[in-house]
Design a protein around this nucleic acid. Structure first.
Length: 794
RNA sequence: GCCGAUGUGGUGAAACUGGUAAACACGCGCGACUCAAAAUCGCGUGCCUCUGGCUUGUGGGUUCAAGUCCCACCAUCGGCACCA
């Protein structure tokens, strides 16, 4: 018997929920609020991926569970739609990016609805909607007004294939994060955001939030805070600062290094070395980051002929130029201590430079260091910093690996940066009343080879008047990176239609912070860090009520293809959720992806497993069909089954709360194995039958809703309360007690629970397979655990 | 090199504060139904020299008892990396 028509059932309930607005969140409800957030998708032409389905289902199960538990739940969805793939797609197919975006969003929305996700669709946002990006631009202007957005000419990471600048976070192993092309350096004026100003708070405030440890650790590593000292060296008349974490080793300095990009590099070299130095600098310039890291094993450098004076010893040490010293970290210059730094050591050996030992590693004690001799490393650091500060030769400082965020992109499909350049007034932000500054609708939006934004070619856009003095002026033509829109989107869901402010203050007070946020690990040092930064800024200017946006952050594992590789069009191993929904149903796909394994693990797809889940749902369908036909009048109550139901409710409650969906599903399977054993059905009272449907609802909302209607239960399933379980009924009357002799399993006894130790010992000793092992042995000890185990030690 | 994680059947995996390792599911085998196949249902399924013994990456340790705790090592994955 298999009349389980998933198509009919699922369409019916999806329409029902939509018509009844079943999952719209209400602002300021008396119920306690929960804000459940999952990263919104980039609406690419490829459509929804089974990976999306995994995390959206997990949070959907959780959101539905919380609603049944009586919470006012906000579970919204939107689209992060600016970015290169759409632009490239549009160029290739000769349709406008906004048109492509519109179509893609339409596809996504219908795919999401077919999964039965309980999003509040009335709050849908789209980062490319001018009503939305008006506020993205508004935030940029606030950043500018507070000195956190600035323009700087600098060597940036340039992707020659995407034809745009990249942030440091977007460069992976010297390659473009998106297209894997080797990144080049390019001198360009760029808008920068001063995220470094928030470095300490971005680390420290991690204490206030409940993120997975590995996420916290990765962010801390990325920010890369290190404490040390800045020390001033003199090279002839110039003063050059170095940063070091080991100021205690100052007596071991035997040479000095400038980065090839250091402004003094060409100035200080002696005449006879000039050609050699210039050539080296030129070579270094043409090495990409990728080449530099690949060649890192073999260090190169060139002697400048100049000498630097150690401010403590007054000793002269040779100044070298070497590209193992980076201009972008510290001051672009180092004091080299080859005895106690492996990189300096390697370099010194190659070029025959002095190596002076100043620490006795065995004793952790300073040697050959004048007034520091005999001190521990830690003590010596304190002493030397005090000394430097007294003599004004240096000071204690902190350095970060984190760099400011390169915020300009030379592309069409992004938020225009709302800035005007006026000859009289300089840089002027677009006035708030003129926002949004809309992207001009144009025919040509291909990126240029010159490194200019395509907007620079559009004279109607570029030429404008200064909002301050009215003179002729020009607009900024760069656009924002694709990370901009997602850096504040969770705020907009709270009040998506507000045109006065980005979101109403009272509403934000009610909903924030986000209680649970799920997203990919790949966003740990990108989106997650950027959005924390923006939130902190908005908090500082009193726009948002909390200093951290997300209370809890978790992460899902990837779904690989059946062959264990990543799903990819080029391998031809992708699974399209639409096909699965058509063939097996949304409830099947939902439960399958929950059952597949632990939520945070990477797991390959397995079509056989999917079929197993479908069979389970058919079993559920059969059970209720038979119940409706036969079981309804006389309910057969089975004691053991009653215990099983209570256990199942308890197990599901804790498993859903802990995101252990795989065992939650298995608990439901065990329940139905009890309910339908060997073709015999065990039916419960009507009250208990309803409880079963309520606990299935979060995982299989369509099927359970259909059955709820078929058994003629009153009210709407989605408005029921999650059933309580009876603690007393969790324990079975009969328990299995393990009998061990010397820790080895010898027998298993089925006895009344709560049996006394004495009675148990008597029964256990009588057991054939136990007495056999106890014969002629002296009893040393008896270990007894109530209702579980008895161990005779002989 | 540094930081983090993970190692359990043929497969995905389960095991709460140490207490019968392998729940649940897939796969496989046998059987029932059928002329037959599929579907469905039932039974079985860690390994071995099988009244017993062995088994959670390897080797030690703590304990009456270790997948779980401690020490050392190996392997795989993820992140960072000439960051001074």
């Amino acid at each position: 018997m298999n009349n389980y028509n998933h198509k009919q059932i699922e369409e019916k309930w999806q329409q029902y929920w939509e018509k009844n607005k079943s999952f719209e969140a209400s602002d300021f409800s008396d119920k306690e609020k929960k804000y459940i957030l999952v990263e919104f998708p980039y609406p690419s032409g490829a459509g929804l991926h089974v990976g999306h389905v995994r995390s959206y289902t997990a949070l959907d199960v959780y959101a539905r569970y919380l609603r049944l538990k009586g919470y006012n739940v906000l579970y919204p969805m939107g689209y992060d739609a600016f970015g290169l793939p759409t632009e490239n797609y549009a160029i290739k197919h000769k349709i406008h990016p906004s048109q492509a975006t519109k179509e893609n969003i339409k596809t996504f929305r219908s795919q999401l609805q077919k999964m039965g996700f309980s999003f509040d669709y009335s709050r849908e946002t789209n980062t490319t909607d001018p009503k939305y990006y008006k506020w993205t631009q508004w935030i940029f202007i606030q950043l500018y007004n507070h000195g956190l957005a600035y323009k700087k000419k600098m060597a940036i990471n340039w992707c020659p294939s995407c034809k745009t600048g990249l942030a440091n976070e977007e460069v992976v192993n010297g390659k473009c994060e998106r297209c894997k092309t080797a990144v080049e350096k390019k001198e360009k004026e760029q808008w920068m955001l001063k995220i470094t100003k928030y470095a300490d708070r971005l680390i420290n405030d991690l204490d206030k939030v409940n993120y997975l440890d590995k996420i916290k650790q990765q962010q801390i590593n990325w920010i890369g805070r290190s404490e040390g000292a800045q020390i001033d060296f003199k090279i002839e008349t110039n003063t050059v600062s170095v940063f070091t974490t080991r100021p205690d080793t100052i007596f071991g300095v035997s040479y000095f290094v400038l980065s090839p990009e250091h402004p003094l590099a060409t100035k200080i070299c002696t005449k006879d070395k000039e050609d050699e130095v210039k050539e080296y600098i030129n070579e270094a310039k043409h090495k990409s980051d990728l080449e530099r890291t690949e060649l890192q094993k073999d260090k190169t450098g060139v002697f400048t002929g100049a000498y630097a004076i150690n401010p403590i010893t007054k000793e002269e040490v040779p100044v070298w130029i070497a590209d193992y010293v980076l201009m972008s970290y510290g001051s672009g210059a180092i004091m080299a201590v080859p005895a106690h730094d492996s990189r300096d050591n390697e370099f010194a050996k190659k070029y025959n430079l002095d190596i002076k030992t100043v620490i006795d590693e065995e004793k952790d004690e300073l040697i050959n260091s004048d007034f520091l001799n005999g001190l521990s490393v830690k003590k010596a650091q304190e002493e030397i910093i005090k000394f430097l500060e007294d003599k004004k030769l240096g000071e204690k400082t902190v350095n970060y690996k984190l760099r400011d965020w390169v915020f300009s992109r030379q592309h069409y499909w992004g938020e225009p940066i709302p800035i005007i350049y006026c000859d009289n007034c300089g840089t002027v932000p677009v006035p708030e009343e003129d926002l949004p500054l809309e992207l001009p609708k144009v025919e040509k939006y291909e990126p240029t080879d010159t490194g200019e934004s395509p907007l620079a070619d559009i004279s109607e856009f570029v030429n404008t008047t200064c909002p301050k003095c009215g003179a002729k002026a020009k607009r900024e033509t760069d656009t924002m990176p694709n990370w901009a829109g997602s850096s504040w989107y969770w705020l907009r869901y709270i009040d998506p239609k507000n045109d006065k402010v980005l979101a109403d203050k009272d509403k934000m007070k009610y909903w924030l912070p986000v209680d649970l946020y799920n997203g990919g690990m790949e966003h740990t040092t990108l989106h997650l860090l950027y959005s924390r930064f923006w939130n902190k800024f908005l908090y500082d200017i009193k726009v948002v009520p909390t200093s951290e946006p997300y209370q809890k952050r978790i992460s899902h594992g990837m779904i690989l293809a059946e062959d264990g590789r990543k799903m990819s069009k080029s391998f031809g191993n992708t699974i399209n959720p639409d096909d699965v929904v058509n063939e097996h149903g949304a409830d099947t796909l939902r439960i399958y992806e929950m059952f597949i394994g632990p939520f945070s693990e990477t797991i390959p797809w397995n079509t056989n497993g999917l079929i197993g889940v479908r069979k389970f749902l058919e079993k559920v369908f059969d059970y209720f069909s038979v119940y409706i036909k036969e079981g309804k009048q006389e309910s057969i109550i089975n004691d053991k089954a009653e215990v099983v139901l209570n256990k199942t409710i308890a197990k599901l409650s804790s498993d859903i709360k802990d995101f252990k969906f795989n065992t939650a599903v298995s608990a439901l399977m065990i329940l139905f194995n009890e309910l339908k054993m060997k073709d015999k059905y065990h039916f419960f009272s009507f009250v208990d039958i309803k409880k079963i449907l309520i606990i299935i609802f979060p995982l299989a909302p369509h099927l359970s809703s259909e059955m709820w209607e078929k058994i003629e239960a009153e009210g709407r399933l989605e408005e029921q309360s999650w059933p309580a379980f009876d603690e007393k009924l969790l324990k079975e009357q009969k328990v299995k007690i393990v009998v061990q002799v010397n820790g080895k399993f010898r027998a298993s006894l089925e006895l009344e629970s709560g049996i006394s130790k004495e009675d148990l010992i008597k029964i256990a000793k009588d057991h054939d397979n136990v007495s056999k092992w106890l014969e002629d042995k002296e009893m040393k000890k008896i270990i007894y655990i109530q209702d579980k185990l008895i161990n005779f030690v002989v």
